[in-house]
Amino acid sequence: MSIMRRIFTWLMSILILLALASIIYLQQPQFVAPRVEAPVASDHFAEGHFHNNPLVPVSTSDEGQFALFYRFLFQEVIDAIPEKPLPSKKTDLHALDPQDNVVVWMGHSTYFMQFDGKTYLIDPVFSDYASPVPGTNKAFPGTNIYDAEDIPAVDYLLISHDHWDHLDLPTLEGLKGKVGQVIAPLGVGSYLIQWGFAQERVFEGDWYDAFEDADVSIYLVPSIHFSGRLLTRNRTLWSGFAILTEKRKVLYSGDTGYGEHFKEIRERLGAFDLAILEDGQYNENWAHIHMSPEQAAQAAQDVDAKAVLAAHNSKFKLAHHAWYDPLERISQASEGQEYRMMTPLIGERVNLDDDTQTFQDWWRQR
């Protein structure tokens, strides 16, 4: 056998082994396909896929998808990742007084909330990585301070969409026995059912559908984004949430570009006491599906928010900006606005009934 033929045989053997390993790897539960029932009537569903309303492209770049992905992985960005562990202040959630009205940011888009006698957990991700590829998209040092054992019983678990930085199987496995009710957009709940959550405890809805419970209404509200955990996109819906009680209204935008939907949400559901708004992972190449900090500040005005918290920043590198850029820019854009911009440390308790509570400009201390 010639040397070239041996090299070819060796390379083919490696490729076959890699293909087999990939097939086996993709059989894991985290790669299950969603099970989606098409909505009876919807202006954002056609031919088996959901779409934004109005229609917008995910990418506005002239580069191909693989070129963008390559640059995302290998292009150097100054201060994209912190040089030292980020500061935090871990709140003992088990020790909270049931009468306290508090919000705790756990980094990126994970929020624990307790108010008006109910507890909520939004988009929990406690894994060190948020990616289908092991060892990639690692959490910044110092940001992953919570795990499932730190979470008390949760009345409502809200999942906004199926991307890896919002829907994490290891985290959900640890939470399974603690959750009363799951609320998710169409198709997203099917992942949890396949992962062992009781079907009767999973509510799926379209935009402006509401889960009604004693003393609380939780609406799924529009966002401008996309879905998909591997190569197939938009088989499941994406959304934000509006939580309405007799005393309080809270908005969580989910991942979204800026659009008229914020004014529509305000018109339909009224002004909000607190708006948790996406602020991070923006880029000119996908400007339609993620907000800039200045757009997040405008969205806060659109929904007449009294107070604002930022989400989708300070834990994972998903875009070409400095890690501190989102908080710096939204703080500047919020100067002189009527709403109160709150910038807690990861894990720091935010007291909803204390309008005098102050926070550090902690991202500047680097």
Rank of each mutant, 00 (worst) to 15 (best):
1 M>K: 11
17 L>Y: 10
21 A>P: 12
21 A>N: 08
25 Y>V: 07
26 L>P: 11
27 Q>T: 15
28 Q>K: 13
29 P>V: 15
30 Q>Y: 11
40 V>I: 15
47 E>T: 11
50 F>T: 00
52 N>K: 02
53 N>A: 13
55 L>T: 13
57 P>L: 06
58 V>G: 03
58 V>F: 07
60 T>K: 14
60 T>E: 08
61 S>A: 14
64 G>F: 09
65 Q>S: 13
68 L>E: 13
70 Y>G: 11
71 R>W: 08
72 F>G: 06
76 E>M: 14
84 K>P: 00
87 P>F: 04
88 S>E: 09
91 T>H: 06
92 D>K: 04
96 L>A: 01
99 Q>T: 11
100 D>G: 06
100 D>M: 08
114 Q>I: 10
114 Q>M: 09
119 T>A: 01
120 Y>E: 01
126 F>E: 00
127 S>A: 15
130 A>W: 01
130 A>D: 06
133 V>C: 03
133 V>R: 06
134 P>G: 06
134 P>S: 02
135 G>I: 06
139 A>R: 00
143 T>P: 02
144 N>G: 02
146 Y>I: 08
146 Y>L: 09
147 D>Q: 14
150 D>Q: 14
150 D>S: 12
171 T>L: 10
171 T>W: 03
174 G>S: 09
174 G>T: 04
176 K>V: 10
176 K>S: 10
177 G>T: 10
185 P>G: 00
193 I>A: 11
209 D>L: 15
212 E>P: 03
212 E>D: 09
213 D>H: 08
214 A>D: 14
219 Y>T: 06
222 P>N: 07
228 G>C: 10
231 L>K: 08
236 T>W: 03
237 L>Q: 04
238 W>E: 09
246 E>V: 11
246 E>Y: 04
251 L>C: 02
252 Y>R: 02
253 S>V: 03
254 G>P: 03
264 E>N: 09
266 R>D: 03
266 R>C: 02
268 R>C: 09
274 L>D: 04
277 L>R: 01
278 E>M: 09
279 D>E: 13
280 G>V: 07
281 Q>F: 14
285 N>S: 12
286 W>N: 02
289 I>S: 04
290 H>V: 12
293 P>Y: 11
296 A>N: 00
296 A>V: 07
300 A>L: 10
303 V>N: 01
304 D>F: 04
305 A>Y: 04
314 S>V: 05
317 K>I: 05
320 H>T: 06
322 A>Q: 10
322 A>Y: 09
325 D>E: 08
327 L>H: 00
330 I>K: 08
333 A>Q: 07
334 S>Q: 09
335 E>Q: 15
336 G>H: 12
341 M>N: 05
343 T>A: 09
344 P>Y: 01
346 I>D: 01
353 D>S: 12
357 Q>P: 05
361 D>Y: 08
